[in-house]
Amino acid sequence: MTDTSEHLAPHAVERLKGLRSQGSHEGIFTSDLSVNEFVMVRKANFEPLGLVVGSCIYHMGIQYGNWNQNMEMDVLSQAMYQARELAISRMEQESILLQADGIVGVRLEVKRMEWDQDILEFMAIGTAVAHRSGASGFKGVGGKPFTSDLSGQDFWMLLQAGYRPMEMVLGSCVYHVAHQGMLKSMGNIGRNTEMEQFTQAMYDARELAMERMQHEAQEAQADGITGVQLHEGSHNWKPHIIEFFAVGTAVKAMENADALVDGLSPQLVIPVND
């Protein structure tokens, strides 16, 4: 994550102080965890500290693809990436103030502003948590709080499985799919055939998004990425422009993992009420 030395608004600092009075757990916490999630986060020896949020309203630059060529819209790719990154780093900033070890249940949302189709709103929101005993060693990259989109249950499960979250990793690629020329369309009349250029565009865009996400995880010194979701979206762009967005939580194996996992004997449950 990029380091931002941004100043939070005074009332934000005030709110965060109320949530956690200088390192003690006496403050009142806020969170959007469900009851089950809350129980499981506490089971994992973590305490919720407060809802942390970061947002970013971003004007997307203009870029045109060549009508009949497949290509990445790099201006848009960068915009989608940078805006998300900014929102996340602002959220991180809040959690640092709370002296949190990390953030669970991060949701990333993108919304289009009504008055201008080039303006998008990005929001990152999650619950900052800290280890109950103050144990260090759960922080993410470079001693910063970890970020993850894991639910409370998943967070507990991940720790039980001998891994700890490092960072929420993203990969984004906005791609212009070439239009087919007239000759090509005419040639396809009556034929059942693959449209290779289109196939290639989708394949390449997905590959690029995945490469980028994997690269981020490597930078975060993670062993792997879990819970990866691949979103395909068009934020009101022209019909031939699509975004592939890969997101997941980069995780790292803990040292005492083996003992932890062996202590757990899972029971298989098959619900019969369909």
Binding site: M157, L158, A161, Q214, T226, G227, G248, V251
Partner: peptide
């Protein structure tokens, strides 16, 4: 890279 949830790491 895995699309699986944390529980499947077990």
């Amino acid at each position: 890279i895995s699309t699986a949830k944390a529980s499947e790491l077990l």
